[in-house]
């Protein structure tokens, strides 16, 4: 269980315009590269001071590769981070205003009721 690392992926990709595009067009390649090269980076520290123990569980990695926001919600990824990044990747495909955002809510509504999965890290 590495909710923190899921959140770290969403956070670091969302704030980087190039990574947003890379994740949209090559999800598996981006997730595998990120886990190998970035997962252990301590933000604000240089590369020599990295962590050594961070990795995804298999189902977390697959949820990111599948860009499966429903599964990410179930795993306890922070919903603000997931929403923000997924809007960045998919709102552009909307045929009408808020189409993706409403579909996202409806998909979750079909499978989740209160209480929602715990997001505490």
């Amino acid at each position: 269980m590495s909710k923190y690392l899921l959140d770290k992926f969403l956070y670091t990709v969302d704030r980087d315009p190039d990574l947003v595009e890379r994740y949209r067009s090559d999800p598996r390649g981006t997730v595998e590269w990120w886990e190998a090269e970035r997962a252990n980076a301590v933000l604000n520290c240089h590369a020599g001071e990295a962590s050594t123990w961070q990795h995804f569980e298999a189902d977390e990695r697959e949820a990111l590769v599948a860009q499966d926001y429903e599964r990410l919600f179930e795993l306890g990824a922070h919903p603000f981070l997931t929403l923000t990044l997924f809007i960045a990747m998919f709102e552009r495909d909307n045929k009408e205003p808020l189409e993706f955002q409403k579909a996202y809510g409806a998909t979750l509504a079909a499978h989740f009721a209160m209480p929602y999965p715990d997001i505490a890290t």
Binding site: F73, H78, P79, F80, L83, Q101, Y104, G105, F112, A113
Partner: peptide, 10 residues
């Protein structure tokens, strides 16, 4: 307010 959940954007 609901963000990234079932009740968003109602």
């Amino acid at each position: 307010l609901e963000l990234g959940g079932p009740r968003q954007f109602g």
